[in-house]
Write a protein that binds this DNA or RNA. Sequence first.
DNA 1: CCTAGATTGTGAAGGTTTTCACAAGCTCGT
DNA 2: ACGAGCTTGTGAAAACCTTCACAATCTAGG
Lengths: 213, 213
Amino acid sequence: MPASRASVRKIAEPTVRRLSHYLRYLEAFERAGRGTVSSGELAHSGGTTSAQVRKDLSFFGSFGKRGLGYDTHELVAKLRQILGLDRAWRLVIVGAGKIGSALARHPGFRGRGFEVVGIFDADPNRVGHVLGGVAVWDVKVLESEIRHLRADIAVLAVPPEEAQTIATRLGRAGVHAILDFSTAPLEVPAGVTVRSVDLALELEVLSHALVSR
Amino acid sequence: MPASRASVRKIAEPTVRRLSHYLRYLEAFERAGRGTVSSGELAHSGGTTSAQVRKDLSFFGSFGKRGLGYDTHELVAKLRQILGLDRAWRLVIVGAGKIGSALARHPGFRGRGFEVVGIFDADPNRVGHVLGGVAVWDVKVLESEIRHLRADIAVLAVPPEEAQTIATRLGRAGVHAILDFSTAPLEVPAGVTVRSVDLALELEVLSHALVSR
DNA sequence: CCTAGATTGTGAAGGTTTTCACAAGCTCGT
DNA sequence: ACGAGCTTGTGAAAACCTTCACAATCTAGG
């Protein structure tokens, strides 16, 4: 593997999503003991085409073997590196309501390299408790505690009317990535990446699919 | 592999998402008592351009007024109709675990026209209870009860290893839309639309953004 | 009524992503 | 060692999506 790990070129978001998908399936192939995987197999699992898979991968160099496919272990390692998963990310959850606490107890994050290191809430009744093995802090100490916990990513699960305030504070506290579950439009300083998960919007996409069948 | 139904109108998915966004902001404008809204204002709220807004809307005909903008009420009604939100959709949740029960108690769905009418789980300890005002049924009676409840959309919040089985059963029970929270790849019969919400994948997109800054 | 100012609707241009098609390269059985 | 059979990598073509630019059209105010 090339030593230069900082040289990650700009990739379109749909491509990143697909890479993430490929990694998921590759890990399944790896567990199944498959030494090599072809673009066609990856495409079938991921709902795309073999040409798409090859184009996506060729963006980072050619590490497949013609006639055989891709080495499973090698490709897993390469994708982890591209996606930045060759290290553990430290996560905080802001908002210990229904969604926040469900996420805190969700076992799937740690298994994929995302460790929940802190939870924040404004409700004094929740502060001081432990959720999923992690302490709940008062949101008043957000900035200092986030720095102390060395958090990289914040999950925002607060009521919409508070989302902007918290997002701004997170930016000031040095968090550069936010996974947002509030439905409010967020304005964040440059250098902060936000991804919004809007469940009502997903349902509306389904609704549209239902009426336009 | 995207299921291309013989749809009346082909709208690209990014367009549908934007329409959904516009509707959100339009409703805010409506509450604020604004009679008309310009494409520029909608664009600003939604993080896009006025040309994009006009292109999106012009796909369905021209119902703006030059020099003035769009009639708020009229556009809200039109978007609701396009998105299929001029009716109430009946939702069932399969899986009363952490995510499933958090969603069941989530108040935001009903407010946007999605009514949770049933919950299913395999755990006998959970069956018979009431979550968010809705009864938890044994997953054994999935098919018959779904027909009885006249459910349109299913939210799939079961462990990955059971997702495929349930998805197949949902398809047989006449559900044509699934919002999937499991991380497994689903194969569904033609005519069933699936949208996957994969939280680990969203975090991986953030991870990539962090390493490629 | 008429002018100034604002905004839509849309063809065309520009850009990006996906698909196609095929030469090149690898493995395996014989 | 060789040919058959796969599979990759990649230009080129096609499809798709976004932005541009401006005529057409509206309102408001005198």
